[in-house]
């Protein structure tokens, strides 16, 4: 007679655990500097020996254009540029996984189609700032991030509409190195790591 009671107890425990998995992060965590903050800062920033901020900004805009970005906003008074480019986001891995899940569920008698990434917008926010210790040096900090949109799918009983969006910051060191090496060539200056 004991077993069914345990079984009923298991349901709320599992439910509690699952709801723990999808818990909303605390708002305090959004305003705290983490150990990674300094690493990201170093990755995203280079110093350039030039007293001309406008030259640095227009060279940065030219490099972003070379990389296929459209400049969406330029604010020389603040030393800021914002650029974006649209690209497809299809990946073989996701599509193979989608097919595998479809086949497995089809055996079980359900037509499950998991939504996969179909489109992405890659954005860049660039900010220049004069060094206080040396007026002939400017720092350039750039942040690459992307928004990804999923296509439609099916749970087997219900249609999943397309357009589910997610956002992620790009922390791949190679992408930042590539950008800064192009920018140094563009302004004929050597970029110094901070």
């Amino acid at each position: 007679m004991r077993r069914p009671v345990f079984r009923w107890l298991l349901v709320p425990i599992l439910g509690g655990l699952l709801s723990g998995c999808v818990q909303m992060p605390k708002v305090e965590t959004f305003f705290v500097l983490t150990p990674e903050s300094a690493q990201h800062r170093a990755l995203q920033t280079r110093m350039f020996e030039t007293p001309d901020e406008k030259e640095l900004l227009s060279a940065s805009a030219a490099v972003l254009q070379d990389l296929g970005f459209q400049i969406e906003e330029s604010r020389p008074q603040v030393g800021m540029l914002r650029a974006a480019k649209e690209r497809g986001a299809r990946e073989y891995g996701q599509e193979i996984m989608q097919s595998l899940i479809f086949i497995l569920c089809a055996i079980g008698g359900k037509a499950v189609i998991t939504p996969v990434d179909v489109h992405q917008q890659i954005s860049a926010t660039l900010v220049t700032r004069r060094s206080e210790t040396d007026a002939s040096r400017f720092s350039v900090r750039i942040l690459f991030h992307r928004s990804i949109w999923k296509g439609d799918g099916n749970t087997g009983d219900q249609h999943i509409p397309p357009g589910q969006q997610s956002l992620e910051v790009i922390n791949d060191a190679k992408i930042y190195q590539q950008f800064f090496s192009k920018l140094s060539k563009s302004v004929f200056l050597e970029a110094h790591k901070i």
Binding site: R75, V78, R82, R141
Partner: peptide, 17 residues
């Protein structure tokens, strides 16, 4: 702007004047 970038925020708009 620099503090926001350090905290991992994405600066959407900035207007100097």
């Amino acid at each position: 702007v620099a503090a926001l970038q350090d905290l991992g925020f994405i600066v959407e708009r900035a207007n100097g004047p």
